[in-house]
Simulated scan of single mutants.
Amino acid sequence: MVDTGRADAAERDRPGAPVRVPTRLARPFLGLAVAALVAGCSGTTTSDTGTGEARPAPAAAETATDAADSTPLAAPAARAATDATEADEDEDAPRVGTLVEDFPVELLPVPEDAVLLVTSAVPVGESPVREVSLNLRTQMSVGAVMTLYRDVLTEAGFTEVTPPADESGPTADATFTRSGGDELVTIGVLDVDGGRTLTLGGRVRTADDGG
């Protein structure tokens, strides 16, 4: 009977004979080789830092920066439009403590000692008519205030449409019209704390408007 152990040893000792790895040792080496191959393939999909986080594309970052830099270019135009709108509104806004521009003082005079409260004179659309208001305080008597405006308005062609009233008391009011009622002025005077408060409002054509 041939001794297989000696035969195997003789076979290994023979020059040029292939080296055989026992089956129980070959399996672990095979597993390590496969793991190394998989790790090498997956490594091509990770970032340089090894964290697995993808870096943003340079083109996208540059595009976002350019868009952010270009956004404020519209701001000056928007501010200019807002300033122009505010200027137009302020031009017709009532004035406190002073006489508004273009107020028709030739038709609605202001007493010399008057303390102006609020005034306004706003054009009505494209027509020559203006909406006017006048609020002031004066030391003139109720009768004197009413006489001042009655004389000026009736001389300008206005007609008083309210019945005569006793103007020696603490209050008085009157309404005047012209141009078939297209122009209207109402006046009220009130005696308060030793002075008179005048409230005047209506719509009129001024001399510059062809009134």
Rank of each mutant, 00 (worst) to 15 (best):
A84M: 05
S141G: 13
V132K: 02
A156T: 05
A93H: 08
D151M: 02
A59H: 04
T119A: 00
L117S: 08
T85M: 09
T147I: 06
R95F: 08
A54K: 09
Q139I: 03
E167Y: 06
A87G: 10
S120N: 07
E155S: 10
P94E: 09
E89K: 13
T85W: 05
T71M: 10
E106S: 10
R150L: 00
A64V: 10
A78M: 11
L117G: 08
A68G: 10
T82P: 01
E160N: 07
D69P: 04
G97Q: 14
V152G: 00
T138L: 04
A144N: 01
R55V: 12
V122A: 08
A61M: 14
R150N: 14
D92I: 12
V96T: 14
G97E: 07
V115G: 05
E91F: 11
A57M: 04
V161G: 00
P164Q: 01
T154W: 01
A64S: 08
Y149P: 04
E89W: 14
L73D: 15
E62R: 13
A77V: 12
R150H: 08
A93S: 15
V129K: 02
V129G: 05
G157L: 08
E86H: 12
S120G: 11
A87D: 14
A144I: 01
E112T: 15
L107S: 05
A84H: 08
E131N: 08
A54H: 06
N135T: 12
A54F: 03
T82G: 09
V118T: 15
P109I: 07
P72W: 09
R137I: 05
T162A: 11
A59S: 11
D66C: 03
Q139F: 10
A121I: 04
T159K: 01
G125V: 12
P170S: 09
S127L: 08
R55Q: 06
P56K: 00
E112C: 03
L108W: 05
E106A: 13
T65F: 08
D90C: 04
D102C: 03
L148F: 04
E86A: 15
V122G: 00
F103S: 04
P164M: 03
P111N: 07
T147P: 03
T147W: 02
T162E: 09
A80M: 05
T82H: 12
D83Q: 13
P163D: 15
L136A: 11
V115D: 10
A165K: 11
A54D: 02
T82M: 12
P58I: 09
V161D: 00
S127H: 04
A68P: 04
A78C: 04
D90G: 03
D151R: 12
R55N: 03
A77F: 14
D113R: 06
A165L: 14
